Deep mutational scan, measured.
Amino acid sequence: DIIVVALYDYEAIHHEDLSFQKGDQMVVLEESGEWWKARSLATRKEGYIPSNYVARVDS
């Protein structure tokens, strides 16, 4: 799995977006363009995230 960590807070604009806080970790489910589908490890919610707001966690 690709794990990313939030670099900034993000408040969902559309209902399919995923809100998150700086430091939150998410599993990337699908990478396509600038918006990635991800699942929050904390809340288990899924939605689209702006890929420029996150960084990959080296395992």
Score class of each variant (00 low, 15 high):
Asp1Met: 15
Asp1Thr: 13
Asp1Leu: 15
Asp1Ile: 14
Asp1Lys: 12
Asp1Gly: 14
Asp1Asn: 13
Ile2Val: 13
Ile2Lys: 12
Ile2Cys: 11
Ile2Leu: 11
Ile2Thr: 11
Ile2Glu: 06
Ile3Leu: 11
Ile3Asp: 01
Ile3Lys: 06
Ile3Phe: 08
Ile3Asn: 04
Val4Thr: 01
Val4Trp: 14
Val4Cys: 09
Val4Lys: 00
Val5Pro: 00
Val5Thr: 07
Val5Gly: 01
Val5Glu: 07
Val5His: 05
Val5Lys: 05
Val5Leu: 06
Ala6Thr: 02
Ala6Phe: 02
Ala6His: 01
Ala6Arg: 00
Leu7Glu: 03
Leu7Val: 06
Leu7Asp: 01
Leu7Gly: 01
Tyr8Ala: 09
Tyr8Gly: 04
Tyr8Cys: 13
Tyr8Val: 08
Asp9Met: 04
Asp9Glu: 05
Asp9Cys: 07
Asp9Trp: 04
Asp9Tyr: 04
Asp9Ile: 04
Tyr10Asp: 00
Tyr10Gln: 01
Tyr10Gly: 01
Tyr10Ile: 01
Tyr10Thr: 00
Glu11Cys: 12
Glu11Pro: 06
Glu11Lys: 13
Glu11Asp: 12
Glu11Tyr: 11
Ala12Cys: 04
Ala12Pro: 08
Ala12Trp: 02
Ile13Met: 11
Ile13Ser: 10
His14Asp: 09
His14Phe: 09
His14Ile: 05
His14Pro: 02
His15Tyr: 12
His15Ser: 14
His15Ala: 14
His15Thr: 14
Glu16Ser: 13
Glu16Gly: 15
Glu16Ile: 08
Glu16Leu: 11
Asp17Lys: 09
Asp17Glu: 15
Asp17Ser: 10
Asp17Phe: 15
Asp17Arg: 09
Asp17Trp: 14
Asp17Leu: 09
Asp17Pro: 02
Leu18Cys: 02
Leu18Gly: 00
Leu18Lys: 00
Leu18Glu: 00
Leu18Pro: 01
Ser19Gly: 09
Ser19Val: 04
Ser19Asp: 06
Ser19Arg: 05
Ser19His: 05
Phe20Met: 04
Phe20Glu: 00
Phe20Asp: 01
Phe20Pro: 00
Gln21Ile: 10
Gln21Gly: 07
Gln21His: 13
Gln21Arg: 15
Gln21Trp: 08
Lys22Pro: 03
Lys22Thr: 08
Lys22Glu: 08
Lys22Val: 09
Lys22His: 05
Lys22Gln: 08
Gly23Arg: 02
Gly23Pro: 00
Gly23Phe: 05
Gly23Leu: 02
Gly23Thr: 03
Gly23Cys: 08
Gly23Val: 01
Gly23Ile: 00
Asp24His: 06
Asp24Gln: 07
Asp24Glu: 15
Gln25Ser: 08
Gln25Met: 15
Gln25Ile: 15
Gln25Cys: 13
Gln25Trp: 15
Gln25Arg: 15
Met26Thr: 01
Met26Ile: 06
Met26Phe: 15
Met26Asn: 00
Met26Val: 02
Met26Glu: 01
Met26Trp: 02
Val27Asn: 04
Val27Leu: 14
Val27Gln: 11
Val27His: 07
Val27Phe: 08
Val28Tyr: 01
Val28Cys: 05
Val28Leu: 13
Val28Asp: 00
Leu29Val: 08
Leu29Arg: 05
Leu29Ala: 04
Leu29Gln: 04
Leu29Phe: 08
Glu30Val: 10
Glu30Met: 09
Glu30Thr: 09
Glu30Leu: 09
Glu30Ile: 11
Glu31Pro: 09
Glu31Leu: 14
Ser32Asn: 14
Ser32Leu: 13
Ser32Cys: 15
Ser32Trp: 13
Ser32Pro: 05
Ser32Lys: 14
Gly33Val: 04
Gly33Asn: 06
Glu34Leu: 14
Glu34Val: 12
Glu34Phe: 15
Glu34Asn: 13
Glu34Lys: 11
Glu34Pro: 11
Trp35Ile: 09
Trp35Met: 12
Trp35His: 08
Trp35Thr: 08
Trp35Phe: 11
Trp35Gln: 08
Trp35Lys: 13
Trp36Leu: 14
Trp36Thr: 07
Trp36Asn: 03
Trp36Gln: 03
Trp36Pro: 02
Trp36Cys: 09
Trp36Ile: 13
Lys37Asn: 05
Lys37Asp: 02
Lys37Glu: 03
Ala38Asp: 01
Ala38Lys: 01
Ala38Cys: 11
Ala38Leu: 04
Arg39Ser: 06
Arg39Glu: 06
Arg39Lys: 10
Arg39Asp: 02
Ser40Val: 09
Ser40Gln: 10
Ser40Ile: 12
Ser40Cys: 10
Ser40Lys: 10
Ser40Glu: 07
Leu41Ala: 05
Leu41Thr: 08
Leu41Ser: 06
Leu41Asn: 05
Leu41Phe: 07
Leu41Pro: 06
Leu41Glu: 06
Leu41Gln: 07
Ala42Met: 10
Ala42Ser: 12
Ala42Gly: 08
Ala42Val: 15
Ala42Gln: 11
Ala42Lys: 14
Thr43Gly: 06
Thr43Val: 03
Thr43Met: 03
Thr43Ala: 04
Arg44Val: 06
Arg44Asn: 15
Arg44Glu: 11
Arg44Cys: 15
Arg44Phe: 15
Arg44Ser: 14
Lys45Met: 11
Lys45Gly: 07
Lys45Val: 08
Glu46Arg: 04
Glu46Tyr: 07
Glu46Phe: 07
Glu46His: 07
Glu46Asp: 05
Glu46Ser: 09
Gly47Met: 03
Gly47Gln: 00
Gly47Leu: 01
Gly47Pro: 00
Ile49Glu: 00
Ile49Asp: 00
Ile49Val: 08
Ile49Pro: 01
Pro50Ala: 03
Pro50Asp: 06
Pro50Arg: 06
Pro50Met: 06
Ser51Asp: 03
Asn52Ile: 09
Asn52Lys: 13
Asn52Trp: 15
Asn52His: 12
Asn52Tyr: 10
Tyr53Glu: 01
Val54Met: 05
Val54Tyr: 02
Val54Ile: 06
Val54Asp: 00
Val54Phe: 12
Ala55Lys: 13
Ala55Thr: 12
Ala55Pro: 01
Ala55Arg: 12
Ala55Asn: 07
Ala55Glu: 12
Ala55Asp: 07
Ala55His: 09
Arg56Lys: 13
Arg56Tyr: 13
Arg56Cys: 09
Arg56Ile: 11
Val57His: 07
Val57Pro: 06
Val57Met: 11
Val57Leu: 14
Asp58Ala: 11
Asp58Gln: 11
Asp58Cys: 12
Asp58Gly: 12
Asp58Pro: 12
Asp58His: 13
Ser59His: 11
Ser59Arg: 06
Ser59Lys: 09
Ser59Met: 14
